[in-house]
Amino acid sequence: MWVEDVWSSNQFPRCLLPLAGASVAAGFPSPADDYVEKNLDLNEYLISNPAATFFVRVSGDSMINAGIHDRDILIVDRALTAQSGHVVIAVIEGELMVKRLRQLHRKWVLIPENDAFPPIEIKGEVELIIWGVVTYVVHPL
């Protein structure tokens, strides 16, 4: 970490005698006070289960046709049970991967959303671990 600027703050004064004391709150309450609602909270909109929701960062562009770009942030809900068609985080050979999960002819397949990448078929010897289901993508425009 670098220090970029140093400012001096005015030193805290020792106790001296001030001229005037407290200010007095006065005036009428705003007529709009009764209508104040809470602010909109994006967390509330995007996250239904905070204990099971994680953010992860995308590296690579194999999911570009699903609107998921390199460096985007994904919102992942681990409480959801993955179904065919979901975009999921899968664990393959110890790595976290983002793919679309599909069941084709009774076989599970992890499909990238970019023609330059091959799908991964889950065969007998490969263990498929679903880490979570992707619910939203955060992408800057």
């Binding site: 992860v56 590296s59 976290l96």
Partner: peptide, 14 residues
Amino acid sequence: YTSRWEQLASVHAK
């Protein structure tokens, strides 16, 4: 992983 934006877990899209 869960408390700094710049340190989120990385998922491969490769």
